[in-house]
Amino acid sequence: MNWPKSDMKSWCSSHESLRVIGVLLLGQLVSLFTALMSLNSSLIAKQGVDAPLTQSMFAYASLALIYGSILIYRHQKPLVSWYWYLLLALADVHGTYLITQAYQYTTITSITLLYCCTIPWSIILTWFFLGTRYSLWQLSGAALCVLGLSVILFSDTGSSGGGSKHILGDVLVILATLFYGISNVGVEFCAKKKDRVEVLCMIGVFGFLITIVEASVTELKTLESVKWSSDNVFCFVGFVVSSFMFYTTTPFVLKLGGATMFNLSSLTTNIWAVVFQVFIYNGKVSWLYFLSFAIIVVGLIIYSTIGKGSLLVSVTTDEKENTKYQLLIDESTASASDSSYD
């Protein structure tokens, strides 16, 4: 049966629209889980517990146990060499460490807004390592988002509440976003080319090993001095559950939309941050936060509607670009033939 070209075009357009809506909805789930992680980290910090590596250790352990069990049930051989996952886990662990450490110094609103720095990092990394190309309009929109971030730095310079050393906290968040950008781009490639269950399992395994070693060196005395209570335990459990759900949904967004789309979608986390700041902490939000958010939204509109290309296309598929990953693909070819894909 031959469909008219107009009907085929209409069907493809409708199918693509549904796919975009699906990615956006998944992105909002990621935003919600990110906000819940931020809330629990902030509550843990307010209770005087400074153990970000320990928080992450339990989150990675949950990934290793759940997704490791799935791989064992499949009898699946590794599709990617272990040291690539080690590098991804190192970036993810230290990104999480820095951003949770930042809660000791600055506010939850500043942290979630400065998290937007992951966007320019993702653009830079996908440009050089995944071969993604962006139009001048898209780059202008991203630059406008960065301009919005500078407003937060200006606001925190003169801020007197919500943290002891605002600028230090802001710098820690920006460094964390660089590590997250590296992790997101790496997970994007592995999720698209390989198996997302294996990605989650191996990040969990190596993340757990890294955090347990580092925590035993840097946080052992801190944990011994903590007066554990039901509130502390509840916040730790909340962080682990929200982290597990965050890591579970992230590969879907990265696979369907790419690292840049993932970080653009997560910007709505700021809305949740403002809600938490007002209703949970009974705090007041500076008008500069709203100005910053407005500038970022305008930048996103320019990026997503005026710029050329679909946000869903974040990795080029031509043979020239794929040769950049030939080493990674060749290393896993032998085991891939005996394994299943999602």
Rank of each mutant, 00 (worst) to 15 (best):
P120N: 11
G207D: 12
G186R: 12
T112R: 06
I124F: 14
G95E: 05
L168N: 02
I119L: 11
T211R: 00
L98A: 08
T109E: 06
G148L: 04
I152W: 01
H94S: 12
I212A: 08
I119Y: 10
L139T: 08
G207I: 09
G131I: 05
R196C: 06
Y105C: 07
Y103V: 10
G158M: 01
L86E: 04
V151S: 01
T107G: 01
K194S: 12
L98Q: 09
T106C: 02
K192C: 08
F129P: 02
F129M: 13
H75D: 12
F208C: 14
I152C: 04
I210C: 01
T211F: 00
L130Y: 02
Y83K: 05
G141R: 09
L136M: 08
F128L: 14
A176K: 05
S135I: 06
L172P: 08
D92W: 04
C201E: 05
D156K: 14
L130W: 02
R196W: 12
K77A: 14
E198K: 10
P78A: 07
V146W: 01
L153D: 02
I203Y: 03
I203N: 15
S140A: 15
K194E: 13
T157Y: 13
F189I: 13
C116E: 05
F128N: 10
P78N: 08
L144P: 06
V205G: 02
R133P: 00
A176C: 10
R133V: 11
E198Y: 09
